[in-house]
């Protein structure tokens, strides 16, 4: 009898899990006035209707629009469990970062990935942080966008604009940059993480060709805005949301244009705290 009880219970559990309707998805929208979540009005812009319809179809659940007075109200509603997704900037995200996480940002059409940037010095040099490099001469590992623009923008995100450093030169590539650093022609080298990896990765597993160098700083650019969810959202829903959004520019152009805005190239996943600085800022 006990076995039968357990077996039937297991079947019921499995059936319940398989057939339980997914909870609705509630999306915050900053409209200037906070009102209760509701299905999107028929008078809403066509792009917004296309966006909501796409989510309804792909998540197989109801999707509600939740008008909010401002981004701070959206963040509060998100952290309190009144909405499931909100489009926030760093200022709105910071107070609720303990209960929430970012999952997606928008990459501009001609922009690169939010690639990490590395600042390295000779191992014997005392500098331990970015702040220690005030006035230091720099070499960048190339002139392409990934080698120059992204590193400069990322350093500026952390307060280290061009005038924070001393002389700056642009090498032909990461190999030449490293040669200049090793020859003592400059005090620090700035590379994107891919170039640093190419420079330092040996042919044998674990081989490090940069044992004479030390990374004093490594960061991605800070995201200016991102889709934020509560940290306790299920992996299933989180990854499906990401999977739907990253392909939206290909699969549902009208919905994408409304959701991502003018000039957007595609949605791009983010790390959990992409809206926040991951270390101290420097400079004035």
């Amino acid at each position: 009898m006990k076995r039968l009880f357990l077996a039937v219970g297991a079947v019921l559990l499995s059936a319940a899990q398989a057939q339980a309707p997914a909870l609705p998805l509630r999306i915050a929208e900053v409209t200037g006035e906070t009102t209760p979540c509701a299905p999107l009005a028929a008078s809403a812009p066509a792009g917004q209707r296309a966006y909501m319809a796409l989510l309804v179809k792909r998540l197989q659940t109801e999707v509600f629009n939740c008008p909010m007075a401002d981004a701070a109200a959206a963040a509060e509603a998100l952290s309190g469990g009144a909405v499931d997704v909100a489009w926030l900037d760093g200022a709105a995200f910071a107070p609720v970062s303990g209960q929430t996480r970012s999952i997606l940002t928008v990459r501009a059409a001609e922009d690169l990935n939010r690639l990490p940037v590395v600042v390295a010095v000779p191992r014997a040099v005392q500098a331990q942080t970015l702040a220690d490099l005030a006035g230091a001469s720099l070499v960048f590992g190339g002139q392409a966008k990934a080698s120059l623009d992204v590193p400069r923008r990322t350093l500026a995100d952390y307060g280290a604009s061009a005038d924070f450093f001393g002389d700056q030169v642009e090498a032909q590539d990461h190999e030449e940059a490293a040669a200049r650093l090793r020859a003592g022609q400059v005090q620090a080298m700035v590379l994107h993480a891919g170039a640093w990896q190419k420079l330092c990765r040996g042919d044998q597993p674990g081989e490090d060709l940069c044992e004479d160098l030390r990374v004093v700083w490594r960061q991605r650019p800070v995201a200016s805005k991102a889709w934020v969810i509560r940290s306790d959202m299920s992996d299933d829903r989180r990854f499906r949301l990401i999977g739907i959004h990253v392909a939206m520019h290909n699969e549902a152009r009208e919905a994408f244009t409304w959701a991502a805005g003018d000039g957007a190239g595609e949605f791009e996943p983010t790390e959990a705290k992409a809206l926040l600085h991951q270390g101290p800022t420097v400079g004035s």
Partner: peptide, 14 residues
């Protein structure tokens, strides 16, 4: 398809 695409796309960040 959505879940596996999302998980793979998020991998370098997660």
């Amino acid at each position: 398809i959505d879940a596996v695409r999302g998980a793979m796309a998020a991998l370098p960040y997660d």
